[in-house]
């Protein structure tokens, strides 16, 4: 079991080495890159915005309920909600959401190419299939995921604002005041760094699990699930590590 784990880790790094080699033709790489960004970005927009609005609203409500005391200033609600949204919820939760959304799509796509020998066909043509298929996806996700994260933050804050406005737990003026109170650019840099690293993990692990499928279509579903579990796990661990390093 342990031995198998180490072999898989080794295979993953060998795979990465194959992925990160110069594309055979830049024009084709660019075309695929743009295509992937489009597919990933547009495809995930709706789910990301819905989840973010809901998340922002719940966080704001929760915070407002916890801090119902007259000697804590009411801008604290906005401030606390903002901090948790920007620093933790959006980077991590949205990354995990995208693992299920984009990651599983990547595994299924590459895995089905493997099962139907399309990857072998690429190899025979003298193309490095790992680089040709995976590199555009990796580069697309490390651009798209942070953008989606920014959108998610905006939608979450909006969700919080709407909640405050509807329930009137604190005044909207105080909420906005809290949102803008003591704003640090470093928080955003921290969030973007996390999202970018998570995006890299998501796209490479998902591709790896699709690429190494050996067998029929049955393996495809298994690989998809495995890819999601493993990348989520790595993301959660890295989250702790990065938080320790950066904060």
């Amino acid at each position: 079991m342990l031995r198998k784990g180490f072999i898989t880790i080794g295979d993953y790094f060998i795979f990465l080495n194959k992925v990160f080699s110069k594309p055979a033709k830049w024009s084709i790489f660019l075309k695929k890159w743009v295509f992937e960004m489009d597919a990933m970005g547009i495809g995930s927009m709706l789910i990301v915005s819905i989840v973010s609005v809901a998340m922002g609203s719940v966080i704001t409500l929760q915070t407002a309920l916890q801090i119902e005391s007259s000697w804590i200033p009411s801008w604290t609600v906005g401030f606390t909600a903002r901090t948790s949204i920007v620093m933790e919820l959006c980077p991590t939760i949205i990354s995990l959401l995208l693992v299920g959304n984009i990651g599983s799509r990547i595994t299924a796509e590459i895995g089905s190419m493997r099962v139907t020998e399309q990857i072998d066909a690429l190899e025979i043509m003298g193309i490095n299939p790992a680089s040709h298929l995976v590199l555009p996806k990796v580069f697309a996700s490390i651009i798209v995921n942070p953008i989606l994260c920014v959108f998610s933050i905006a939608f979450a804050l909006l969700g919080g604002y709407l909640t405050v406005w509807i329930t009137d737990c604190v005044s909207t003026y105080n909420y906005i005041d809290g949102l803008t109170y003591c704003f640090r650019v470093y928080d955003v840099i921290y969030a973007m760094t996390k999202t970018t690293i998570f995006a890299f993990v998501m796209s490479t692990v998902a591709s790896f699990y699709g690429y190494k499928i050996d067998g029929g279509a049955l393996e495809l579903g298994k690989a998809s699930t495995q890819g999601i579990i493993v990348s989520s796990f790595i993301i959660l661990i890295l989250n702790v590590v990065i938080t320790n390093i950066m904060l």
């Binding site: 020998e117 399309q118 066909a121 043509m125």
Partner: peptide, 20 residues
């Protein structure tokens, strides 16, 4: 060298293996 040699190869797979 392998990749170079492979540009001189053409293969038709049992299941066609066209790019979907």
């Amino acid at each position: 060298d392998k990749q170079k040699l492979r540009t001189e190869m053409g293969m038709v797979f049992q299941g066609a293996a066209l790019f979907d």
